[in-house]
Simulated scan of single mutants.
Amino acid sequence: MHIQLQQVVPIPLRDRFAQRQSDIWNAHVTFAEGEWIKIKAPSGTGKTTLIHILYKLRSDYEGAVLWGNENLKGIQPASLAQLRQQSVSIIFQDLRLFDHLTARENIELNRVLQQPFYESNKIDEMAELLNVQYILDQRAGLCSYGEQQRIAIIRALVQPFTWLLMDEPFSHLDKANTARATSLIAAECATRKAGFILTDLDEDDHFNYSKHLQL
Rank of each mutant, 00 (worst) to 15 (best):
A64Q: 02
S210P: 09
K122I: 09
A186E: 06
A41L: 06
N131V: 14
D15A: 11
K175A: 14
W36T: 04
L95G: 08
P42R: 06
I107V: 05
E70Q: 08
P160D: 01
E147N: 06
I37F: 05
T199W: 06
I11P: 06
L109Q: 08
K38I: 10
Y61T: 00
K175P: 08
S22H: 08
H52I: 04
L129G: 05
G46V: 08
S183Y: 02
N106G: 05
I91W: 02
S22V: 10
L113E: 07
I3G: 01
M126R: 02
E33Y: 09
R58Q: 10
L95R: 07
T182P: 03
D124P: 04
L5T: 04
D202Y: 13
L164T: 02
A127Q: 09
R104N: 11
V158S: 01
V132F: 08
R139A: 15
N208A: 14
S171I: 09
C143P: 08
L184M: 12
V132E: 01
I75V: 05
N177Q: 03
I24D: 03
Y209Q: 08
I75T: 02
Q19S: 15
K193A: 10
K211H: 14
E35H: 14
L165V: 03
G74S: 04
H212Q: 09
G63T: 02
H2N: 15
A64E: 01
T48A: 03
A64P: 03
Q4Y: 08
L165A: 02
I90Q: 00
Y134F: 13
R20T: 12
F207Q: 02
T45K: 12
Q76M: 02
I51W: 00
A127F: 07
L72Q: 00
A181E: 02
L198C: 09
R84M: 04
R150F: 00
D94E: 13
Q159A: 15
I151N: 03
H100K: 10
P160I: 01
G34V: 05
E108L: 15
F17S: 04
Q19N: 15
L142K: 15
K40Q: 14
N121P: 06
L184A: 04
F170A: 03
P12W: 06
E125L: 14
L101W: 11
K40P: 05
A27I: 02
P77L: 01
Q115W: 10
K211I: 07
Y55V: 02
N69T: 15
S120I: 11
H2L: 14
L109G: 05
D15Y: 10
L142C: 14
R155C: 01
E128L: 09
I135M: 03
D60V: 06
S120Y: 08
S22L: 11
H172L: 13
W36R: 06
Q82D: 13
T162Y: 09
